[in-house]
Amino acid sequence: MAAAVPFEQWTAEEKYGHFMRRIENGEKIEADDWMPDDYRKALIRLITMHGISEIMGAFPEKEWVPKAPTLRRKLAIMAKVQDEMGHGQLLLRVAEDLVKPCGKTREDILQDLFAKRLKFHNVFHMPSPTWADAAVIAWLVDGAAILSQTMMLKTSYGPYGRALKRICQEESFHAKHGESLTLSLAEGTPAQRRMLQEAIDRWWEPLLMFFGPKTKEATGHTNVDKNLKYKLRTKTNEELRQEFLSKYVPKIRLLGLAIPDPTLRYDDEKGEWIYREPDWNKFKQIVTGNGPKTDERLRLRRTSYENGRWVREALAQWKAAAV
């Protein structure tokens, strides 16, 4: 290959080869760099899902924002849910840059969400009927999210990595907030402890599901492999789940709480946790938009989006007049 040939005239194969060498060398890809469609698609799928999950993730907790028990807790949970919306905003900006060459905008991303073409994390389809759910979400769901987001900090896509850096910093505050809420309930009255135990019982299976199925046979697709190949991620679903169990099982037990899985144990020989498999059919149903709270939360999101249409139109006109 002659060095003098300008990049635009390279063959598709040459461009792809060059791109993959950059990935293998650990270089960061930026928004305006050439990238194969396959990579762009993988990024769009990953980052829109993450961004929309942050936004939809605000819903189960936001139900408890006005009801948080004390002034201090009200302030803390307001800040926490605001952070989640902020993460959603940050990630949607990254996604907007990626869908732009495809002629798409944020509007399209939101319409995809409303039409259930866009998935979001299984945990955010679940009900959060008590204050203890807000505690368990902040402690364990955010704790799980930190593990998968930290793993992606070294992602090959520069803009995503930079967004994740800020997100991870804030998430670690959330997990501390969640731990503090959980501790107060664990040390509280029998009613408070009962409420907490019931929340753990409700969230255990969704938490195991959060990391996704073990094998591609179970998922039916190869997104994880592709994301590994492009160095978007560095660990498999199961590796992350094992990390989660190692980190949180002892903490949960230390609080005197029960984990609703009698088969759960650490196998010293294998060096891994043995646990009861969550129901992956149920998982598939949930993430394709048929979870217990999916429709209700999407309806809330869609209604507010439609109620705000006149405002967005007014802003567009104001902007056009100002130009």
Binding site: A79, Q82, M85, Q89, S304, G308
Partner: peptide, 15 residues
């Protein structure tokens, strides 16, 4: 929270 006309406003209003 979560219901304002756009996501940027959700963040600002919450502050």
């Amino acid at each position: 929270l979560g219901l304002t006309p756009h996501i940027e406003e959700d963040v600002a209003f919450s502050s």
